[in-house]
């Protein structure tokens, strides 16, 4: 049985198949509306989430399946001290597949060890968030037409930003990728990712502090939020949170076909005046998150796409 705990659990080929299936769904969503009839998705969310939980639920409902679950640890048996291992053993008899978000890193891996159903990691602390990575890949693939030969700017909190780490892991497997990391000194990409991911893959990268300097070179700009919950020290958070604010003026140096992605939620790192720019695709990206989760659920359940009707 296959689980999705890290973006690297899927080979490049498997990732390509999921993205292709998601692109078919974007074109003809009605074709898939009863693929999961009779199947149940359990959403086990031990910490609050809006987009991820609702997009999983929307994905299963779009496929004709049903959903059950909880949206905070307080409303689950975790509040009584139940272990993840015990919870998943029970849930395995209630549902066909589950998506788990947990504040502790590695919790979905524990679940996968004890589950008899596929487990999808829907975010574990600052560690992995593979369905966000699939969403990012689908957005780039669909709107750029490729995942290779791209200069990708990663901007903001590169130290704690799990979406950035996961995206780097996934993209180094494609040809001709060049990263430009834009962050304050304190929030630079951890050196282990450079040494263990970028350098062995031979992926070139630059580290800059100026967003304006990087802008003209970029095919994709991936903005991130400086996350309050990742800081132990409130003063550091306040000092760093407004380092990069993308506005129309900064965007003036960008290519006409550059894409602006953001995993959302944003706070103020992208000014609302940018929303109307055709390069701003972050709301489209959130929409694609539903399609890629639909494709993932189908794939992990081993379900085939229905024949196209002509």
């Amino acid at each position: 049985m296959k689980h999705l705990l890290s973006p690297l659990d899927l080979s490049v080929e498997e990732t390509g198949q999921i993205l292709s299936l998601a692109e078919e769904m974007i074109k003809a969503p009605d074709r898939f509306r009863s693929v999961c009839q009779g199947k149940k998705l359990a959403t086990l969310f031990y910490e609050p989430s809006t987009r991820t939980r609702l997009s999983f639920e929307a994905a299963m409902l779009n496929l004709g399946g049903s959903i059950l679950g909880f949206s905070s640890a307080d409303s689950s048996s975790a509040a009584k001290g139940e272990s993840v291992a015990d919870t998943i053993r029970v849930i395995s008899s209630y549902a066909d597949i589950c998506a788990m978000r947990h504040p502790k890193e590695g919790a979905p891996m524990v679940a996968a060890q004890y589950a008899s159903i596929p487990v999808i990691n829907a975010g574990d602390g600052g560690h992995n968030h593979p369905t966000q990575t699939l969403t990012d890949l689908l957005t780039i693939q669909s709107l750029k037409g490729r995942l290779s030969h791209l200069t990708i700017g990663l901007c903001g909190d590169l130290k704690f930003g799990r979406t950035v780490h996961s995206l780097i892991h996934a993209l180094v497997r494609y040809e001709g990728i060049h990263f430009i990391m834009i962050s304050p000194e304190e929030l630079r990409l951890p050196s282990y990712i450079k040494k263990e991911v970028l350098e062995p893959a031979g992926t070139p990268y630059q580290e800059l502090t100026s967003l304006e300097d990087a802008m003209p070179k970029l095919d994709v700009l991936y903005m991130t939020r400086v996350q309050r919950e990742r800081f132990f020290n409130e003063e550091d958070y306040i000092r760093l949170k407004d380092t990069y604010i993308l506005d129309k003026q900064k965007l003036s140096g960008a290519k006409d076909d550059m894409l602006i992605l953001h995993p959302l939620p944003r706070v103020n790192e992208i000014a609302s005046e940018v929303d109307s720019d055709p390069r701003a695709v972050y709301f489209k990206q959130a929409e694609y998150g539903v399609y890629v989760r639909m494709a993932l659920i189908m794939t992990l359940l081993g379900l085939q796409a229905p024949e196209a009707q002509f």
Binding site: V84, E105, G106, A107, V110
Partner: peptide, 18 residues
């Protein structure tokens, strides 16, 4: 922040990565 900090009876396990 690791799950091993709260999950009882979970063996701590490390993999050689480099």
């Amino acid at each position: 922040r690791c799950i091993t900090s709260i999950e009882q009876d979970l063996p701590h396990s490390f993999r050689l990565t480099n």
